[in-house]
């Protein structure tokens, strides 16, 4: 304990204090309880719902599932020919797919597009559905508000990770891009920070999974900070022209630039000196 001003003797003395045993037991119980609460949030969501007087989320989720999802994913989420099993996909996956309107899918295309949510899919219903699917076989959970808070991330660091991992499909500002066989990387502009995080940990549709050992939760938050910062930025150079690069620039050069100049040249040469 050099330099701290606390001598080894004084700690030893405190260990012998009459209340030390009580304190140690209380600390151990607290750590155990808190640790359990952190490590096993699955059951606790349902428990908390019951404790707070709400209906059982898992049971509610199951009835929602049967009503809206089971026709494709099977009565017990075991999967059918039309859609994969949902056992083990986790709450994050359900939250991403349903909150972005991709699920329930409208028709069988190469890829389910983002669309407005159906009326029944309120935030509460999405939570219940997520809780039900989470109860089936675990999987990635919905990130906390703090985990996705752009204000807590470093956009510069996030930008480097974004360029290294995302832009080859999603474009340099997340405007989206084409993939093969009619698939595409969607625009990131309408995505909430939570959805961006969930997409990284679940890898929806054609997207690969970026798990926590590839990109740490802090790095994910940095990336979210970059994405939200850049997309909310007012383009300093005027209209951003869709922010998709030289294609729209070339279009504007011809359709606006050359057209106006041709009109100007026609106008100038049409002006003739009036006969005196």
């Amino acid at each position: 304990m050099i330099g701290t001003g606390i001598s080894v003797n004084s700690i030893t003395a405190r260990r012998r204090h009459p209340l030390a045993r009580v304190a140690v037991v209380a600390l151990a119980l607290g750590l155990l309880g808190g640790g359990y609460a952190l490590a096993a949030p699955n059951g606790s969501t349902a428990d908390a719902a019951i404790a707070s007087g709400k209906a059982d989320d898992v049971a509610q989720g199951k009835s929602l599932f049967v009503a809206h999802c089971a026709s494709c994913h099977g009565m017990n989420a075991e999967g059918t020919k039309r859609a994969p099993t949902l056992i083990g996909v986790g709450a994050a996956s359900v939250d991403f797919q349903v909150s972005s309107g991709r699920m329930p899918a409208a028709d069988a295309g190469p890829q389910a597009p983002r669309k407005p949510r159906p009326e029944w899919a309120t935030d509460e219903a999405v939570n219940q559905l997520s809780a039900y699917v989470q109860s089936l076989g675990g999987g990635p959970t919905v990130p906390s508000a703090e985990q996705v808070d752009p204000a807590k991330g470093d956009p510069a660091k996030g930008g480097e990770l974004f360029r290294a991992n995302c832009i080859q499909c999603h474009n340099f500002v997340g405007a989206g891009g084409a993939l093969t066989y009619g698939k595409y990387a969607p625009s990131l502009n309408p995505s909430t920070p939570t959805q961006i995080y969930e997409a990284m940990i679940t890898g929806p549709q054609a997207m690969p999974v970026f798990n926590d050992s590839t990109i740490t939760p802090e790095q994910k938050r940095d990336m979210i900070a970059y994405i939200t910062h850049v997309r909310s930025q007012v383009d300093p150079g005027g209209s951003g022209l869709g922010r998709i690069g030289p294609v729209t620039e070339g279009l504007v050069a011809w359709v606006v630039g050359i057209s106006l100049l041709v009109l100007a040249s026609i106008w100038i040469t049409a002006k003739k000196r009036r006969a005196a």
């Binding site: 832009i167 340099f172 070339g250 011809w254």
Partner: peptide, 14 residues
């Protein structure tokens, strides 16, 4: 190492 979707040249190289 990095490349963006929608990488195009200016129009005259298109």
């Amino acid at each position: 190492a990095d490349i963006s979707a929608g990488s195009q040249p200016d129009w005259y190289m298109g």
